[in-house]
């Protein structure tokens, strides 16, 4: 293989990035069919969710089965703020993210010292509590019927109405998620998360306050779920508790595992494969889960670290 000089490698890198950005920017003009564009928007939502989950699961090694609850928190926060309190979208979006962050911290504090499997159980419990509260607290959340008639979002003079508009909004959120995660994971914070995943005792001996860093990873990861939920609320114009069941948390975990843990972009491949698979086999209704299961088992058997991942589950 010919040796590639550093300069030309950098040049290639810049060009390939520009090509990807240009491709993403014109994508709605290539996919004109609104159904396909809708699927693309779904992929964007799951990309935000899974990038956040990857910080928790792939980088820090915490198995959280409550990600859908933070997604739901963001969704309900935006729905309630916009329908009842007349908030416009941008502040509702930011508050939704922060609310998920705060709840991440609140759940993180009591769970910071429990071992992995107990942490996992507690996140399941939190997810179920959230869903039950959303279902039962009818005056506030609308119960099983949820909240309908969420207004059309506007950001300054941009009214977000068509699938294409939502595509660009989703793209902006994905880019924001990605860039902020690049900053975080390239810093001593990101390295501390990885150190905790690899060996928690050794990490603490390196001067890392491991309980605090676990809470940090968990709440930052949840923040992105809050953003995704907020997007979902204005995209669907309705929000119901059934969108935030345990199945949803499991699906996100499968996406991250199939795509690959511990590298920022790897989960996207899992998101695309899983979203397309669920859509393609829509006619099979609940039997779809069978196919999803087969995909996951196949990937884990042949590539335990996922398609593009760097970290695998430890024994």
């Amino acid at each position: 293989m010919p040796k590639i000089s550093k300069k030309s490698a950098v040049k290639f890198n810049v060009i390939s990035h520009l090509a990807v950005i240009a491709g993403l920017a014109v994508l709605p003009f290539i996919i004109e069919n609104p159904y396909y564009l809708g699927i693309t928007n779904l992929i964007l939502i799951y990309t935000i969710l899974c990038m956040g989950l990857n910080l928790i699961l792939g980088y820090t090694g915490l198995l959280s089965l409550g990600h859908a609850a933070f997604y739901g928190l963001g969704g309900y926060a935006t729905a309630i703020l916009m329908t009842r309190y007349g908030f416009s979208f941008l502040p509702a979006l930011i508050i939704s993210g922060l609310l998920a962050l705060i709840f991440g911290m609140l759940l993180g504090v009591p769970t910071r010292k429990v071992r992995g499997d107990y942490f996992c159980l507690l996140t399941i419990a939190f997810g179920e509590i959230f869903r039950l509260v959303a279902q039962a607290w009818i005056p506030f959340t609308g119960g099983a019927m949820g909240i309908v008639g969420i207004p059309i979002p506007r950001i300054f003079s941009w009214t977000i109405r068509s699938e294409t508009d939502f595509y660009y909004l989703g793209l902006i959120l994905v880019v924001f998620t990605y860039l902020s995660l690049v900053l975080l994971t390239a810093s001593r914070f990101g390295r501390a998360f990885v150190a905790i995943r690899e060996d928690e005792l050794a990490a603490s001996v390196m001067g890392i306050n491991t309980p605090a860093y676990k809470i940090l990873a968990f709440s930052i990861g949840s923040f992105y779920a809050g953003l995704a939920g907020s997007y979902l609320a204005v995209y669907q114009t309705t929000i119901t508790p059934s969108s935030f069941r345990l199945d949803e948390s499991c699906l996100m975990i499968i996406m991250v595992i199939v795509g690959g843990m511990g590298s920022l972009l790897a989960p996207i491949s899992g998101v695309i494969i899983m979203t397309l698979a669920t859509e393609a086999f829509r006619s099979l209704a609940d039997y779809r889960m069978l196919i999803i299961g087969v995909i996951m088992v196949t990937v884990l058997l042949f590539r335990p670290q996922g398609l593009f991942g760097t970290a695998a589950f430890k024994d």
Partner: peptide, 15 residues
């Protein structure tokens, strides 16, 4: 830290 580069191991040590 087994699955991390030598350099990153040192940088974690420098946390």
């Amino acid at each position: 830290f087994q699955n991390i580069s030598v350099m990153t191991n040192i940088l974690i040590g420098r946390h």
